[in-house]
Each structure stands twice: as structure tokens, then as C-alpha cells.
């Protein structure tokens, strides 16, 4: 079973899994980071409270977060086809993955930014800081450790979703595991892909935590 084509297939699976996970997480942050920032600013106690805006975003996030990923994947197929040109394969999977990641990211960013003390935000306001400065320097700057931990959690979740997309030919390691393990009863290949998936999650987790710790200056001795 371990011929050259099999090895190439596995390597391509790893590449595709990385590609889908990283790209979707990136695009997820392009949408989710601003959402998290707006949620933080507009919530009561934020520096620009706005009930309507907060409630609207809050509801959108709650709704999209409650749609199971597989259903979301099928629901957005027309959109995927429009953007990517086809509805299967790893490039196509990025569309539903991004849409699933964005609201999760919005929430994670919101909760990270809300950990920043009211006092230091107030100090910046008292210095006459622009909202932009407060967002980047105070909120994101001070919450960076928590934000990075968030990134590692999102990466793990998105990778898990990407494997689920294997059911509909989504590409990557999950696709291989399902094709061989489920359709062909080849447990060996399935287990190998599983080991790779776990290893990748571990790797990303480790790198994220290392970076988070490295960048944290709050408890220096």
C-alpha cells in the first residue's frame, strides 16, 4: 500500500490542509477582527456605545454560529461556485470555512479585547487619543497574548472543519481519510492521515502558545 503515489497523495493532503486552514483563518480574521472590534467599542461600557449596532452584530453572529458546519457548507455552495468556479476541492472549501470561522473569530476577539482593563483605556482617552489609536495600541496591543491564543484555537477548529469537508470532496487530509477509511475500509491510510492531522494541530498549538508567551510582558520577573 505504501507506494509512491500514496506518499505523494498524503503529502498533497498535508499541503492542502495547511492551505485551507491558513487561508480560511486569514480571511476569517479579515471579517472577524473588525466585527470583534466593533462589538467591543459599541457594547455598553465601550468607548462608543451603540445599542443598535451591537445588537445587530450580536444576532448575526449568534445565527451564523448556530448553523452546523456541514449544513453551512451545503447552503453556501452557490456562493462558492460563484467565487471559486466550482463547489468541491480545497480552494472551494475555503469559502464555507471562512464563513464559519468569521463569527467565531468575532466572538473570540471581542472576549480578548474586553479583558483589557477599563483603567488603561480611560487613561488613553484622558490623553486625547483617537479611537483608532485606542483600538490598535491599547486594545489590540494590550490583548495580544489573548488574541494569539485565540488564533491557535481558531486554527484548530478550522482544521477540524476542513476535515469534515472531506465528506463532500473538500480536499486535504480529511478527504483522504474519508475516501480510504470510510469508502474503501482501508484503516491503515485513515490512521496515518489521522496522525498527521493531530500532529498539525499540535504543531500550530505549540507555535501559537510559544509566540503568545514570548510576546507577554505582564508577568516578567
Amino acid at each position: 500500500m505504501w507506494d509512491k503515489t500514496m506518499i505523494i497523495m498524503l503529502l498533497e493532503g498535508i499541503r492542502d490542509t495547511f492551505y485551507m486552514t491558513l487561508a480560511s483563518t486569514f480571511f476569517g480574521y479579515v471579517i472577524g477582527l473588525p466585527m470583534g472590534i466593533v462589538l467591543t467599542l459599541t457594547d455598553k461600557g465601550g468607548i462608543a456605545p451603540n445599542r443598535t449596532v451591537y445588537r445587530m452584530l450580536d444576532i448575526v453572529i449568534n445565527i451564523t454560529r448556530s448553523v452546523p458546519f456541514l449544513i453551512l457548507l451545503i447552503l453556501v455552495m452557490p456562493l462558492t461556485k460563484l467565487i471559486v468556479g466550482k463547489s468541491y476541492g480545497s480552494a472551494a472549501t475555503i469559502v464555507p470555512l471562512t464563513l464559519a470561522a468569521a463569527p467565531l473569530i468575532g466572538r473570540m476577539v471581542e472576549s480578548s479585547l474586553k479583558e483589557v482593563g477599563q483603567g488603561v483605556i480611560e487613561a488613553a482617552v484622558s490623553m486625547g487619543a483617537r479611537t483608532r489609536t485606542i483600538v490598535f495600541k491599547v486594545l489590540i496591543g494590550e490583548a495580544r497574548t489573548s488574541l494569539l491564543v485565540g488564533v491557535t484555537i481558531v486554527l484548530g477548529t478550522v482544521l477540524g472543519y476542513s476535515a469534515m469537508a472531506g465528506v463532500v470532496g473538500g480536499g486535504g487530509l480529511g478527504d483522504i481519510a474519508i475516501r480510504y477509511g470510510y469508502y474503501r475500509y482501508d484503516t491503515g491510510v485513515m490512521l496515518v492521515t489521522l496522525v498527521f492531522i493531530v500532529a498539525i494541530v499540535q504543531l500550530m498549538q505549540g507555535a501559537g502558545m510559544f509566540a503568545a508567551k514570548k510576546l507577554d510582558h505582564r508577568n516578567k520577573e
Binding site: 483603567g119 488603561v120 480611560e122 484622558s126 495600541k137 491599547v138 496591543g141 494590550e142 497574548t145 510582558h217
Partner: peptide, 13 residues
């Protein structure tokens, strides 16, 4: 200018 009981410095800077 304003100074505070709990200093309110940027902890990451």
C-alpha cells in the same frame, strides 16, 4: 493630565 490610583500603564509596553 490625569493620574490614577492604579497607574493605568500599558502593561505590554
Amino acid at each position: 493630565g490625569m493620574i490614577f490610583q492604579h497607574f493605568n500603564l500599558l502593561e505590554q509596553q
